[in-house]
């Protein structure tokens, strides 16, 4: 088995790094491979390679070494490195973003609960308490404080639930003072940012007509 294999398909050229080979072997074989290619008289155009390390995460240093080796040849450069694995830490972060988190505690005056992804909120947010998340918020509990979806700046998120007793509803950078905007006392209320970048309240049933884009995004 070779440590470095050159492949070509309609996406371009790919350098596949074998998972069993050591990085030293890879460097040696890579040089050999590129020498062969470079001496081939037909190569006149610039060639970009995708590097595919199989079951291997390249460190920044290794990445740099590969760049350096390939950079020694005039016609060659790395297009990008496409790993097929990720660290557990990255995986958790990714998973967090897609999860619907269940939160059922009481968020009291002065406390902030910060989450990632969508949140199904069953607890209570007292006056002065804040619930922040990067995704959307679905409320089945009591909100007397502040909820912020799409933190810090995503305006395509929504807040659904009874919001009429809340202090503020925020989506991305848009803020609604609930006392002034007076949403319905209804658990079917949806707060969203409209095309004019204004935070608006609507009824979930009317969502299809108000914002078809949002309706489809939410599985309608």
């Amino acid at each position: 088995m070779q440590a470095v294999v050159l492949r070509g398909n309609q996406d371009g050229y790919q350098i596949v790094l074998d998972q069993a080979a050591s990085f030293e072997e890879i460097k040696v074989e890579l040089r050999g491979l590129l020498d062969n290619l470079a001496t081939d008289a037909q190569v006149t155009d610039q060639i970009s390679f995708d590097v595919l390390p199989i079951s291997r995460l390249l460190t920044a240093q290794q990445h740099q070494q590969l760049e350096q080796i390939i950079g020694e040849y005039d016609h060659f450069r790395i297009h990008k490195v496409i790993p097929d694995v990720m660290t557990i830490e990255d995986a958790i972060t990714l998973k967090e973003q897609d999860n619907v988190h269940l939160a059922s505690q009481t968020i009291r005056n002065g406390q902030t609960l910060e989450l990632k992804g969508d949140v199904l909120f069953l607890g209570a947010i007292n006056e002065g308490g804040r619930l922040l998340t990067t995704g959307s918020i679905y409320i089945m509990g009591t909100v007397l404080g502040i909820v912020q979806a799409g933190f810090p700046s995503a305006e395509d998120q929504v807040v659904i639930g009874d919001l009429h007793e809340a202090q503020q509803v925020r989506i991305g950078e848009q803020i609604s003072i609930v006392e002034a905007d007076q949403p319905q006392a209804d658990s079917q209320t949806i707060a969203y940012v409209n095309d004019l970048h204004v935070l608006e309240y609507g009824s979930l049933a009317a969502l299809k007509t108000i914002s078809p884009k949002l309706y489809h995004k939410m599985g309608g």
Partner: peptide, 12 residues
């Protein structure tokens, strides 16, 4: 009551 809520939070 608002301040008491804050204190309950700190005690938690």
């Amino acid at each position: 009551v608002r301040d008491a809520d804050r204190v309950v939070g700190l005690l938690e």
